[in-house]
Design a protein around this nucleic acid. Structure first.
Length: 265
DNA sequence: TTCCATGTTCCGCA
DNA sequence: TTGCGGAACATGGA
């Protein structure tokens, strides 16, 4: 689930539930999600502090702590999400890290497959240097940066959109959607796109990401001509009715319409 | 039982 | 040097 639009919604969720509450206790229930860092770092640094504000860089959510430079970073892997609990109910699902606030409410980081990460950084530069992330697809990639990225890339269009060190935030699902909305085949080489195609791709990249956020990432709320709800074998193109095809691009499954997105020569 | 899955990383090869 | 395929990581559903 978690690509840029999902993480943006997680950010808003955290903002509306957990900001400005003093942390009482941090329970690391799976040490695998804290990466190289010691669980003690979280359990000793965080209690007594408050989440002050949040920001998002690509698929990473960063939370600033009040009266400190520390940044608490969340990455959601393929299966991560938050669950805010206001009652003493028993934990369900796959809780990996639980933040308990002094008012008794809890913010649960749930991640079934444990491919996500909860980690503490001294400051923003420390985070950036470790993660090697490019500019955020929604907030930091302007037309000229996009132009440079696409004309300099030797990779296929889909791979280029997904490369986090070039553009941060787009994953497998939304790269398919952006290419579908632009009418570009996922295997087309990025550098062979015409200027007019790069213009459209840039616009659609922003449009699709914003639309997904506005739709709260729910397929039913997205425009009727979106591929996302039809991204499965045997479904038909929401624009022309053709059978949707599935292929592999750089090892990832790619869905596309062979009529709307013509194959490269 | 086997294959596949929204993420990232690492290795070998072209 | 860049990009690709494949494997690995961890877990579960079809």
């Amino acid at each position: 689930m978690p690509e840029l639009p999902d993480v943006e919604l997680f950010r808003k969720y955290l903002d509306s539930t957990s900001l400005h509450k003093t942390i009482e206790e941090v329970d690391v229930r799976s040490e695998q999600v804290v990466g190289d860092r010691q669980p003690e770092e979280l359990t000793t640094v965080l209690p007594g502090r408050q989440f002050y504000s949040s920001l998002r860089q690509g698929k990473h959510l960063l939370v600033e702590l009040k009266k400190s430079n520390y940044l608490l970073e969340f990455h959601f892997g393929m299966t991560g999400f938050f669950n805010y609990l206001t009652t003493q109910e028993k934990l369900t699902g796959h809780p990996r890290v639980v933040f308990t606030f002094v008012d008794g409410t809890r913010l649960v980081y749930d991640c079934q497959r444990k491919l996500g990460e909860v980690s503490l950084f001294e400051n923003f530069d420390g985070f950036l240097s470790v993660k090697n992330l490019g500019p955020d697809a929604l907030n930091q990639v302007d037309r000229s940066k996009f132009e440079r990225i696409f004309t300099n890339s030797r990779a296929m269009a889909k791979s280029t959109l997904m490369k986090q060190e070039k553009i941060a935030g787009i994953g497998n699902i939304y790269s398919d959607e952006i290419l579908f909305q632009t009418g570009i085949h996922p295997r087309v080489k990025a550098s062979t796109l015409a200027k007019e195609e790069r213009d459209r791709l840039f616009k659609k990249m922003k449009e699709v990401l914003n639309t997904a956020i506005e739709s709260e990432v729910e397929p039913e709320k997205m425009p009727p001509d979106y591929l996302l709800p039809h991204r499965s074998p045997g479904s038909s193109c929401p624009k022309c009715g053709e059978d949707i095809e599935k292929t592999k691009v750089s090892g990832r499954s790619a869905y596309f319409c062979p009529r709307c997105q013509k194959a490269p020569k």
